[in-house]
């Protein structure tokens, strides 16, 4: 088990959004303000870590024929818990994310990591995997949010800073509101993935040069 490698993978080289292309529904739909992005990211991280731990703990008890049904039940349970807790304690976030909270159940990141990682690894490794992948997901969401919010509404930190209005960086008559509409979601994600591909290639070349120098 290698914590540093797992962290690096979650953040960049195997980022759930930009590389594995998982959970794109929520990535595109809710990334319109920083508050949404961070809230969704943390909710998914919490659910992913819990479900990873439980599934890793039960991996030897669940017969393989019914594993998907069992995983979905466990995940749906955690999602409902988070949904109820948010409704009771952070109603503003629950209101803002709406139906996309229950839809975390079918977010492929969680089932994907359950099937691809937690069902084959120890509890500890799965917990670390859940946290790292969750952070990677949150990072991607936050980047998307910052870009879309800045270009679409001209603000930074909407829902969080400056009493919920966000800090205005572009005068209100200029922003292209299409960026917070569906179009902006697709375009931004396209550019973010392209950016991460470029970055990885760049790092790859750098690493190779380093190795060659040795």
């Amino acid at each position: 088990m290698n914590f540093k490698r797992q962290f690096r993978e979650g953040l960049l080289t195997k980022n759930p959004v930009t590389v594995q292309l998982l959970g794109m529904c929520s990535t595109l739909a809710i990334t319109t303000s920083l508050f949404n992005g961070i809230g969704m990211g943390l909710a998914v991280t919490a659910i992913l870590t819990c479900s990873n731990i439980l599934i890793a703990a039960l991996r030897n008890f669940i017969p393989s024929q019914i594993r998907i049904a069992a995983y979905i039940t466990i995940i749906a349970g955690f999602v409902t818990v988070v949904d109820l807790l948010l409704k009771a304690f952070i109603p503003a976030l629950s209101q803002s994310l709406g139906v996309f909270i229950p839809l975390i159940v079918v977010n492929c990141i969680i089932l994907g990591r359950a099937e691809g990682f937690a069902s084959k690894n120890t509890v500890l490794a799965s917990a670390v995997d859940g946290i790292c992948q969750g952070i990677g997901y949150t990072l991607a969401l936050v980047i998307m949010c910052v870009i879309r919010e800045l270009l679409g509404s001209g603000t930074f930190g909407g829902g969080l800073l400056n009493g919920g209005e966000g800090i205005r960086l572009i005068p209100s008559q200029f922003p292209a509101m299409q960026m917070v509409m569906p179009v902006g979601g697709f375009l931004t994600l396209g550019f973010v993935i392209a950016g991460s591909q470029w970055l990885m290639k760049h790092l790859d070349i750098k690493n190779k040069k380093k190795e060659a120098a040795k």
């Binding site: 179009v183 902006g184 396209g190 993935i193 392209a194 591909q197 470029w198 290639k201």
Partner: peptide, 21 residues
């Protein structure tokens, strides 16, 4: 190069979404 595959497909999807607007 770095747009090959998914990124360019997403941008195409964005334009499709624009037309649906």
């Amino acid at each position: 190069e770095c747009f090959k595959g998914f990124p360019i497909a997403l941008i195409a999807a964005g334009l499709l979404a624009l037309s649906f607007m």
